[in-house]
């Protein structure tokens, strides 16, 4: 076998290991589904009437259609917590030194975590989409738009997962690793996930319009609900690719130094 096929085989072995962990210990995966679903219920049934009229004329009673893409995006950020924790617990438990002394691809351990994390988070995202549909979310997307939605969400999850892997590598304790991605989970709120950014105070609005989650939210909303996308899609994809590269480089260097 060539070096590349070894790298693929080793990454696949590590992926199987991480998925087995996730199945055996779903306690880290459940919140990824549960928190966004609770948020969804809160925003639709508790705050929905008030927020709906603020979102725009004609949106009363259909706030779910506005907020659901934002909530779906939120699920991707919670996935990063479980990745940071699983990476950190590997690094602190001595097993990583065994992996480091094996003649395996250096990238395999992280690839396994990241791919495993992406699969887990996307699975959670599908459940959250299902929950949104049950609460009355009625997207008008074509199959092609659904495919684009899936593609964009995969890019978002990939970026967040590499960033989270890096956080997990740099955290000294598992507790610290579980706290590190918390700012990520708040970012959708400070974007256009819950309410449009032009309803926000100037300083927050400025931040909201330039942070990565806003173009992602706008693109998702456009794909699913047919609202205006404009150049959001391009900016969203650029953010995702840029953050993926950043997270990958940082994580690889942290792992090699470790």
């Amino acid at each position: 076998m060539s070096t590349l096929s070894y790298a693929v085989a080793d990454s696949a072995t590590m992926l199987r290991r991480n998925l087995r962990h996730a199945l055996r210990y779903p306690s880290m995966t459940i919140p990824v589904v549960a928190i966004p679903v609770v948020m969804l219920l809160l925003f639709v049934y508790v705050f929905g009437n008030a927020l709906g009229s603020g979102v725009g004329p004609g949106a009363e009673g259909h706030y779910v259609d506005y907020v659901a893409p934002g909530i779906i995006l939120m699920a991707t950020t919670y996935g990063s917590v479980s990745v940071a924790v699983s990476v950190c617990s590997d690094m602190t438990e001595g097993i990583v030194n065994r992996f480091r002394t094996l003649s395996i691809s250096r990238a395999a351990v992280l690839n396994g975590h990241v791919l495993g994390g992406v699969v887990q988070t996307l699975f959670s995202v599908v459940l959250v989409v299902g929950a949104a549909l049950l609460t009355g979310f009625r997207p008008n997307a074509t199959p092609l738009e659904w495919l684009a939605t899936a593609g964009l969400l995969t890019l978002v999850v990939l970026a967040l997962t590499w960033l989270a892997a890096d956080m997990g590598l740099r955290a000294r304790t598992v507790e610290a690793a579980s706290n590190a991605p918390t700012p990520l989970t708040f970012l959708p709120f400070l974007g256009s996930a819950i309410v449009p950014t032009d309803s926000m105070p100037t300083a927050v609005r400025w931040f909201a319009e330039y942070q990565p989650f806003t173009p992602v939210t706008e693109t998702l909303r456009g794909l699913l609900m047919g609202t205006e996308i404009g150049n959001s899609a391009l900016i969203a994809v650029a953010w995702c690719l840029g953050l993926t590269v950043l997270g990958y480089i940082r994580a690889r260097s942290a792992y090699d130094k470790g």
Partner: peptide, 8 residues
């Protein structure tokens, strides 16, 4: 320190 995977 035992380098075993505690979850397997």
């Amino acid at each position: 320190f035992a380098a075993v995977d505690a979850k397997l």
